[in-house]
Design a protein around this nucleic acid. Structure first.
Lengths: 212, 212
DNA sequence: CTAACGTTTGTCCATCCGGTCAAAAATTTG
DNA sequence: CAAATTTTTGACCGGATGGACAAACGTTAG
């Protein structure tokens, strides 16, 4: 499917990496159109023509970035399987997704930017790879429901809600920090979020009629 | 705080409205920098200089749009009060937010774009008006928890999770529809989402030890 | 009708931006 | 070292874009 990776010198490897790192920073905060090659070049500490020596077009950088992103992005969902206890399994999925939001917020925002604008570059992937991956996991979740291990509900919207709540802490980070303020908005906010989400997804808000 | 609204002729009112409508469409899908005045002008059915007669700068359109947005955007949260039953109150808040995602997806995306890019234009508002509104509602929610009406949990993250899950259906609509496919991705998806979210927030995923 | 005022448009400009190119500088190879 | 190859840069180009402006057009009031 893909053309064979062209041979590259050591310098090319390193510089391309440097550029991608810089581009991730820039693209994730300004979007594709909002970012300029000059910005990226400056962030990577090189001149524009020099950057264009390593990537011939602005789009080429973006595409490379998106392609890489998707592999790591879907890894947590791929790992979801039905070997362990369903609730434990879901809990770790939520935790892994939240860790990704904490550790790779730029990737999350890059992805969010892409989707927000109608996913012009990755639509086929959403309808193909992503959809079938989701269907695969939906089957697992349905199994858990049939076995009475988790409540019967809509498995697809369950997945959406996990995506939404976890990615929120990357994509809307500014808002989260603004609302939490300096006291609560520090590094501890991800642990608070993890505790909350675990409780929400496991028990919901309704108080137990009989104490646990 | 604001300058008095300048007097405007009937034509000015109408044309400005037309421009804002067109600009909402364009800005919400391409972001601020990704949108051109020409695009907006064409969508509004007028020439660029004509548009600039009504709004002197591109930013002026965007600011006006954002200002309006915020009023309607926060309305559902403002309405949250402790007159009724807490769970009912939360349920209608979720429902109202989901309806907004369904009926005003462009506003949601405009807001998301702004936050994603670091909220350069509305930071003060987030730290001021939004934060204090949230604090006010946090107090109410804490009251409910003390009264044992809802489970004890983090009220701020509870609010975040409602924002995240509902806005997801506007901001990530393309992805949602791609994953659901043509069968499930039709107009019914919002009702499915409403049902799911209600169940999630009320009962969570853990199956009841004793049947209801 | 006409003066005054509001609206619309064609034209133009300066800047930005993606991308090219040839030549210089650095590095590798023999 | 010297030739070959790779990397870097300054200068440049063409098109897009935000915005200015004056002239034309339309409308309304006297």
């Amino acid at each position: 499917m893909n053309a064979p990776a062209p041979r590259r010198t050591r310098i090319q490897q390193e510089k391309r990496e440097l550029i991608l790192e810089a581009a991730l920073e820039v693209f994730s905060t300004h979007g594709f159109r909002g970012s300029t090659i000059d910005q990226i070049a400056e962030a990577a500490g090189m001149s524009k023509p020099n950057l264009l020596y390593y990537f011939r077009r602005k789009e080429e950088i973006h595409e490379t970035l998106i392609q890489r992103l998707l592999d790591t992005w879907l890894a947590p969902l791929r790992e979801l399987d039905d070997v362990g206890d369903p609730l434990t399994e879901l809990r770790s999925y939520i935790r892994r997704k939240l860790e990704m939001a904490r550790d790779y917020p730029r990737e999350s925002r890059l992805f969010a930017n892409e989707i927000l604008q109608g996913a012009p570059r990755i639509m086929p992937l959403l309808e193909g790879e992503l959809k079938s991956l989701v269907e695969e996991k939906v089957a697992i979740i349905k199994g858990w429901m049939r076995a009475g291990k988790i409540v019967r509900t809509d498995p697809r919207h369950l997945i959406f809600s996990i995506w939404a709540t976890t990615q929120h802490y990357a994509d809307f980070d500014v808002q989260v920090r603004a609302v939490l303020g300096p006291d609560l908005g520090g590094d501890g906010r991800f642990e608070d979020a993890a505790r909350f989400l675990e409780q929400l997804f496991l028990d919901g808000l309704k108080p137990k009629a009989s104490a646990d």
